[in-house]
């Protein structure tokens, strides 16, 4: 009985594999003849921070060019750079700038910015904090606002959920690791982070600059703290002066020009994807 079932299953599987295999190999190339002439498959690999956004951009690109398939794979920025160099991927993804020895033969295209700022309640008298003060607050060495020229009130330190790109940026900026952070509470969602500060004059949290600026402009009682004297805003992220920000980059090879890759990069850097960028809490580039 068992053997009969097993054999039957196996036959079905093998048949399915054969049929599936035959169907696929020529489907994208010949089955469709889209009007714009773009056909084929694009493979992107690299940064896991950029991958969810890239997958959404790819999906929208596929809708506009039915003959194209965009496959997004992850594995980290270094892998993205390596894969595009070796030709294993058409486009690499990186959430850090390239090192000098990685750049020859490659072109980088910034598709979005990942910027993070610290925010407090609008009624908090503290207008700015130095990097040392911020570090001391987040590692539990300063626990009262009066130590940084504020009111006599305990500081409610709010950290972000592990694995978020904000945490990566902040720990990298202060050269600490996540266990070094001594937080009173953890905020996962951006909205949760905003609410934890807008409802508590003694709280401090960090989150996406795009979201913070948007909420502050809407009248939510929060204040974006400057960093190294640079005001926290989308503008300073875009002109590269805000220190707590990084570009999200797509990388292409110079020696193998392809109309498909060019079209995709043009699309990924166009204003057509701004809403997708914002949905992932990143800052869209200037167009």
């Amino acid at each position: 009985m068992f053997r009969a079932i097993a054999a039957h299953l196996m036959m079905t599987l093998m048949l399915a594999a054969l049929l599936g295999g035959c169907g696929d190999s020529d489907a994208p190339a010949t089955a469709r003849s889209p009007a714009d002439g773009l056909t084929g498959k694009l493979t992107l690999t690299g940064s896991s921070t950029l991958a969810p956004l890239a997958a959404e951009i790819g999906k929208r690109f596929e809708q506009r060019h039915p003959g194209v398939r965009v496959d997004v794979q992850t594995g980290g920025s270094s892998r993205g750079i390596r894969d595009v160099t070796s030709g294993a991927a058409d486009v690499g993804m990186s959430s850090r700038s390239l090192n000098a020895d990685e750049t020859p033969g490659l072109t980088t295209h910034t598709v979005a910015w990942d910027g993070v700022c610290f925010i407090v309640h609008r009624d908090n008298p503290v207008a700015a904090l130095t990097n040392e003060q911020l570090l001391a607050i987040y590692t539990g060495k300063i626990d009262n606002w009066k130590q940084v020229d504020g009111d006599d009130a305990p500081i409610v330190v709010i950290d972000r959920a592990e694995g978020r790109s904000e945490v990566e940026l902040v720990t990298h900026f202060f050269r600490i690791t996540t266990p070094d952070i001594k937080a009173d509470a953890i905020a996962g969602e951006n909205q949760q982070a905003i609410k934890s500060v807008s409802t508590n004059p003694n709280a401090i949290v960090y989150l996406s600059i795009g979201t913070s600026e948007h909420e502050a402009a809407r009248g939510v009682p929060i204040k974006l703290l400057p960093l190294n004297g640079v005001p926290a805003s989308v503008a300073t992220v875009l002109d590269g002066t805000f220190p707590l920000a990084r570009p999200l980059i797509m990388i292409t090879r110079n020696d193998t020009p392809s109309p498909l890759v060019d079209a995709f990069i043009a699309f990924a850097t166009s204003s057509d994807v701004d809403d997708l960028v914002e949905a992932q809490s990143f800052v869209p580039i200037k167009h």
């Binding site: 295999g21 169907g23 921070t49 969810p52 496959d71 794979q73």
Partner: peptide
Amino acid sequence: GYVTRTPASLLDSGRSLSVHIYDLAMN
């Protein structure tokens, strides 16, 4: 791999449930 499109054949990339859970929880 990481692709969430419905696979048309065994030669397509396809994201498994565990990878999907990991990505949603961490990324």
